[in-house]
Each structure stands twice: as structure tokens, then as C-alpha cells.
């Protein structure tokens, strides 16, 4: 296997730019790291997960569905080059797999899938978290994984696409797998108390042990900013709207929506099945920890921690789960 330093990787990503529209973590002007093209900013691989919803590459906040001129409907064209996304964490890759399945099961969402198909996903793991913190290694659900050993990134190809990419990469030193083994052991030894907490919260919800009062209390602290939904890599809800783009020309867009809003389920008649703040707060947590378990066989939260970070009042899914478990066991 090969180990790369950042210079090698920058050159490699540049080379892969021939086949892909490459997005890497770049440093924005205030120090925020975000996905961008190599020429848009300084590459910043290390630093842990990206703040914004990482799956937005395939499912953007606002996206054109189609343009209709008269009776002629032109759907959004697929990207001219497939996307290559560098910088997901192992948790993010799990989220992406969850979203992939969601958008591909039963009806297939072509807007998502035309961006996702043939794309390449590169996970960063190992000691490249904030201040060198150890990030969990992926379960292999990505094309390529770059495992940072504190000095270099070990390249692990997990798919045919990943192997093809690895072949086109520049530089790198041939290295043994000892260091990888050590990192794998370290990754396995990472604490899993958060996962246990979440699983406990999930069982409480599935067993119907959380009373209405709990949700009233949490919802009193919710200011309906919707950030939990907008930052969540597995949230998929959207609304649709039309904008005129000239005489008899209309663009239809879709836009991230949030189940924390009163209008999310309100019907034109005024009836609202989620008409109280408590019901909406419950839905946010219950959907990920119970409904998804019933429907998909797994929780819809992979503990990326984004909703806890973006929530202005501290009621992200981890915080709420903690309170729930403290109160009800």
C-alpha cells in the first residue's frame, strides 16, 4: 500500500480532476472548512468533520428540478463530469449510504442519483481530527479511504472505482501495513458510549417509555431555527416551489425543508397532524431513533454531532438522548 503526504494528495486530486469534478475540504476566509474545488481555497484535509451537511454535494439546499417552457419540460441535466468528494468521515459515509438507499428504494430520485451515480467518495480517517484527534476508520462503504497516521495518509481502495483512482494518484511511498493495523486497532478501541446512549434512547422510544411532557419541556427550548435538519447528513425532506423565468417559462426548484416548522405538515384546510411544538420536537428525534429503525432496520443517526453543534439552544439529538436516558432509564 502507498502513503501520501498533502503535496502528493493535492497533485493526485488535481490529476483526478481530468475525470472528476473534485471537491476537497478547503479553508474559507474565517477559518471554517468546507467542500470546494482545489482552486477555490487552500486545501485543509485535517481538522475533522466538515461543519456543513456533507451530503449536500448530492442533495443541495436548493436545486433545480426542471425548466418548463410552454409544454416543453426540460429536467435538470446531469453533471457534465462525475463528482469526486474528499473529506467525509466514516460516520458521514454511513450517512451517505443511508441517504443513497433512501433515494434509491421504491421510487428512485433521479435528481439525487444523477449526481451520485459514478461519483467517487473519499473518506478521511485516522489522526486527522481536530488537533490530531483519532477519527474512526470506515467500514469500507466508500471508494477510497485516506487514513492519516500522523505523518502520511495511507490509501485504502474499497471499490473498483477506488482502485482505479489509486492508480492515477501521484507520488506516495510504498509502505507496509503495520501502521495501518495499529490505526485499525486504535479505531476499534475508540469509546462507544455515545452509541450506547443512542441505542438506549432508541429502545425507550420504541418501547413507548417517553411521555408527552418530556417533549413539551424540550420544545420549550426550541426556537425553530431548523438548523438540526439542515445540518443533518441523513435529513432528506424538501419543499418544492416555482419561479417564473420569463414569459411562459417556469423553473421548479426543490429546497431543504424542516419538520420543525409548523407549516411542514399543515394542510390547506388548516388541519395539522404535527400541530404542536412538542409533536414536532418528538418527530425530529423519534424519526431518527425509532421510525427509521422500524422502516430501514437501523437508526437514521450516525452520531456525526452536527445537530448538537448548530443548535443555538443545545437540544441536538445527543443532548436530548442524554436527557431522555437520564430521566427514563
Amino acid at each position: 500500500m502507498k502513503a501520501y503526504d498533502e503535496t502528493d494528495l493535492a497533485l493526485s486530486f488535481q490529476a483526478l480532476g481530468a475525470d472528476y469534478d473534485v471537491r476537497v475540504p478547503i479553508l474559507l476566509s474565517d477559518g471554517t472548512r468546507s467542500l470546494g474545488r482545489l482552486e477555490e481555497g487552500k486545501m485543509a484535509l485535517a481538522g475533522g468533520k466538515l461543519g456543513a451537511k456533507p451530503t449536500s454535494v448530492f442533495f443541495p439546499q436548493m436545486d433545480l428540478v426542471f425548466q418548463q417552457k410552454g409544454t416543453n419540460v426540460r429536467m435538470q441535466a446531469p453533471p457534465s463530469k462525475p463528482l469526486m468528494v474528499v473529506g467525509l468521515t466514516a460516520q458521514d459515509a454511513d450517512c451517505l449510504a443511508f441517504l443513497d438507499r433512501f433515494f434509491s428504494t421504491n421510487f428512485k430520485d433521479d435528481l439525487y442519483r444523477q449526481k451520485r451515480m459514478n461519483s467517487a467518495v473519499v473518506v478521511l480517517s485516522g489522526k486527522c481530527g481536530r488537533d490530531g484527534e483519532m477519527l474512526r476508520l470506515s467500514s469500507g462503504n466508500c471508494d477510497l479511504e485516506l487514513v492519516f497516521d500522523g505523518d502520511r495518509y495511507l490509501a485504502l481502495a474499497h471499490s473498483q472505482t477506488g482502485k482505479a483512482m489509486a492508480e492515477k494518484m501521484k507520488g506516495g511511498l510504498e509502505t507496509d501495513e503495520i501502521s495501518l493495523g495499529r490505526l485499525q486497532r486504535e479505531s476499534k478501541a475508540l469509546p462507544d458510549d455515545e452509541l450506547k446512549l443512542l441505542q438506549r434512547a432508541s429502545s425507550l422510544l420504541l418501547d413507548n417509555k417517553v411521555p408527552e411532557d418530556f417533549w413539551v419541556d424540550i420544545s420549550n427550548r426550541c426556537i425553530a431555527c431548523t438548523a438540526c435538519n439542515l445540518a443533518c447528513p441523513t435529513c432528506n425532506c424538501f419543499d418544492v416551489f416555482d419561479w417564473k423565468c420569463g414569459d411562459s417559462c417556469v423553473n421548479r426548484y426543490r429546497l431543504w425543508d424542516s419538520c420543525q416548522l409548523d407549516g411542514f405538515m399543515r394542510e390547506a384546510s388548516g388541519h395539522n397532524p404535527m400541530g404542536t411544538e412538542a409533536l414536532r420536537t418528538r418527530r425530529r428525534i423519534h424519526h431518527k431513533l425509532a421510525a427509521d429503525v422500524i422502516r430501514w432496520g437501523q437508526m437514521g443517526c450516525f452520531l456525526c454531532g452536527r445537530c448538537d453543534e448548530v443548535c443555538p439552544t443545545g437540544i441536538g439529538i445527543k443532548a436530548v438522548s442524554r436527557e431522555m436516558v437520564e430521566k427514563y432509564g
Binding site: F238, R254, P273, A290, A291, I294, R295
Partner: peptide, 9 residues
């Protein structure tokens, strides 16, 4: 897909 009509799962 859009999530507006969910009833639990």
C-alpha cells in the same frame, strides 16, 4: 421522498 406526509415510519 419529500417527507411531508410521514406517519411515524
Amino acid at each position: 421522498k419529500c417527507g411531508h406526509c410521514t406517519i411515524e415510519h
